[in-house]
């Protein structure tokens, strides 16, 4: 359940931003979640709903999935990461540290492990809407 730890990170960061911007209340937070990290959205949503701090009590968290696109730095081939192709242990290791993908995944064209995660790595905050 490391979704819980990430949810805490989201709530803590949003609270810090709300404080800094002098927001009375946070109306909406848009979160993007990359598929490489295979975050369980239900758990993340549940954790967020449990963790809502004072200023976030009415906040709507909109979560959007982003597919994980990888690009080989050697031959330029691009592909999409698919969890279904992984064995469970490997998928779990990548879940905890997405960079572990370099340990277990190779470019399907040239065999290189030197690839770039173009998008869809982990979790990030796209926007925060607040009431001043």
């Amino acid at each position: 359940m490391h979704e819980w730890a990430l949810a805490e990170a989201v709530v803590s960061t949003v609270s810090q931003i709300a404080e800094k911007e002098g927001l009375k209340e946070v109306a909406e937070v848009k979160i993007k979640v990359g598929e490489l990290q295979q975050i369980e959205l239900e758990i993340l949503e549940f954790a967020l709903s449990q963790l809502k701090a004072l200023k976030l009590k009415n906040t709507k968290f909109s979560i959007q999935k982003v597919r994980a696109e990888l690009k080989c730095r050697v031959c330029g081939h691009k592909w999409i990461f698919r969890k279904e192709k992984m064995n469970e242990e490997v998928a779990e290791a990548i879940h905890f540290i997405p960079e572990i993908a370099h340990t277990y995944i190779k470019c399907i064209k040239c065999g290189s492990r030197d690839f770039e995660i173009l998008e869809g790595r982990g979790i990030w905050l796209e926007s925060i809407k607040g009431v001043k």
Binding site: A93, F96, I97, E99, H102, T103, D114
Partner: peptide, 22 residues
């Protein structure tokens, strides 16, 4: 715990990301 006995070839930005994650 995650990379096991295998190599983990990481560039600088990946190292940063893994560090922040942990």
């Amino acid at each position: 715990y995650y990379s096991g006995e295998y190599a983990s070839p990481l560039r600088g930005a990946d190292i940063s990301n893994a560090l922040i994650e942990l």
